[in-house]
């Protein structure tokens, strides 16, 4: 089972995980990203922009890579776009496998890679009326690159 989507509407994680569980699945892992309020409460909303066509292709490629690297019975990547307020869901990655290790590793791989390799851009709309584009974080590049080192988890028993 493979599901990749870029959408404005919210997702139902429980329903998605039920769909992901299939023949041979012994473990499901998932990650949900949520719009985080600024420490001072100043964030009104995030506005998510994407590159129609390219973004979907980039996400499909990440799913291909996860399926090639770990023995999965399925995976899901859903990313929301448009205007999202603090507390709302923004991204969902999930993987299913016979045993927990592959599902957990693939789920983490998908979100780590998505952060640096899928064309999405966030703008912050603040309570004071200002809007600014979010800068990319070098730490995200390092996290994504760490999956290419010999110590990163490969197919697990």
């Amino acid at each position: 089972m493979r599901l990749v989507a870029v959408q404005e509407q919210d997702f139902d994680a429980g329903a998605l995980l039920a769909r992901l569980s299939g023949a041979g699945t012994g473990g499901l892992a998932s990650f949900i990203g949520i719009v985080r309020q600024a420490p001072d409460g100043g964030l009104k909303a995030l506005c998510l922009e994407y590159y129609p066509g390219m973004t979907e292709k980039a996400l499909e490629r990440l799913a291909d890579e996860a399926e090639a690297r770990w023995a999965l019975t399925g995976c899901i990547i859903i990313h929301r776009v448009g205007r999202l307020e603090p507390g709302q869901n923004i991204v969902f990655t999930a993987a299913a496998s016979a045993h927990r290790g592959n599902a957990l590793a693939a789920t983490a791989y998908l979100i780590d890679q998505l952060k640096t390799r899928a064309p999405f851009w966030k703008a912050e709309e603040m309570q004071d009326g200002t809007t600014s584009w979010v800068d990319a974080r070098e730490a995200d590049d390092a996290t994504a690159a760490a999956w290419n080192t010999p110590a990163s988890p490969e197919n697990l028993p």
């Binding site: 590159y51 998505l114 800068d135």
Partner: peptide
């Protein structure tokens, strides 16, 4: 051809 800043999804 697309031009854009570094990506910030997730």
């Amino acid at each position: 051809i697309g031009f854009f800043p570094p990506v910030t999804g997730g």
